[in-house]
Structures are given as C-alpha cells and as structure tokens.
Amino acid sequence: MGELFATYNILGAFGLTILLTVSSAVGSLVIGTVVAIMRVSPVRFLNRVGAFYVNVVRNTPLTLIIVFCNIGFIVNLGMSFTDNIARNNIIWAIIGLSFYHAAFVCEALRSGVNTVPAGQAEAARSIGLTFGQSLTEVLLPQAFRGAITPLGNTLIALTKNTTVATAIGVAEISGLMKEMMEFRPDVIVVIFLIVALGFVILTLPIGLVTTHLSSKLAVKR
C-alpha cells in the first residue's frame, strides 16, 4: 500500500477532488441563490426562466454537461482560458459542476423559503419593506438556516460527482484510480478501498457537520 502511495500521487489527486468540490460549491451556491431568488420573485417572467433552468439542468446527465463543456466550448467554439490543457479542463469542469449543482442548490433554498411562514412575508411587506429588503432581511436568512440539511446533501453529492470530470481528463482521484487499475491489477482491491475510504473521509464530516448545524441553527418557531 505504501508502494502505491509512493508511485502514484494519490494525495495530490484527492487534493484536486477537494479543489473541484470547494470551487464548485461556491460557484453553485452563488448561481443557485440567484436562480432561487428568480423563482420566488413576484416577476412571472423570472419565475419561468428560473423554473426552466432548474428543469433543464437538473434533468440533464452530468456527464453530458461536463463533456459538452469540453467538446462544445473548447473544441468547437475554441473558448479557452489558457493554453494549458489540464488547467483549462479544470476550469471548465468547475463551471460545469457549478451550473449543474446550482439547480439542486436552488431547490434546496426554495424548500428553505417554504419553512418561513407566509405571514412573515406579508408582515414584511405591510411594514413597508420592498421585495429586496424582505428577501435579504427576513426570508433568505431563515431560508438558509432551514435548508442546511438539503444543502449538505447537495454538497455530498457534489463531492462524489467531481469524479465525472475524469471524462474530460481532469486528473482527480477516479482518473488516477483508472490508471492504477491499468498498471496494478494485482492490487485492485486495495486501490478500490483506498479511493472508497478517501471519499468517506471527505463526505462523512460534511454529513456530521450539517446534521449538527441543522439542529443548532434551526429557527425555533
């Protein structure tokens, strides 16, 4: 096992998995919040656009989105950020992962918004707050606190979904796993266990933290 760690940069590959996870988590949180606001806003056009986005993106396989980021944007449209292929693919993978998971973040937030009693929104409007004010002062703070569990689930799913980035050659852990399996089929079970254990180490704390936070930060009504 030590030999595997010496020959292959397993920790580096997990590092890239973490980089993909964290960057895409931030990206999807930002995009998802915007889409969620569109979906709860009083403007019908924005409602429709938000719903359309969620329904299209959520129901498209992630592999398709990631491969399209490469084949569509890089190969056919020539939209490259840098000449370094590996770095370019990482950036596009983060973009693809962010837009995909934004749909789930949006729905998680919307479920959080639903935990806020309708009376509060009415009260906010009746004391003269605008839609923006009632959103940022009343609705969203409670929505985020109510949506911690589904957001945590989305984050765990995102962590594991980063493995799809291997389809366009991002050197994260599942790509390395394929390489190790190609060269060392004699220790295939050990390789498999290392990768599985690595993901448990990454995702288990997320679950524990979100469970803890969801009860600690829950809005007591």
Partner: peptide
C-alpha cells in the same frame, strides 16, 4: 485517461500538454 499510453508519454515527454478523454 488512465491508459498505459497516456502514462508512458507523460514519462517520455515531461510536462507534455496532454488532453485525456474517456
């Protein structure tokens, strides 16, 4: 990705600009 050829060419040409697909 993960093929013998990909690993081999990275060894022979260090820092090669390599695109890997499935």
């Amino acid at each position: 990705k993960g093929s013998t050829s990909a690993a081999n060419v990275q060894k022979l040409v260090p820092g090669v600009n390599l695109q890997e697909y499935g």
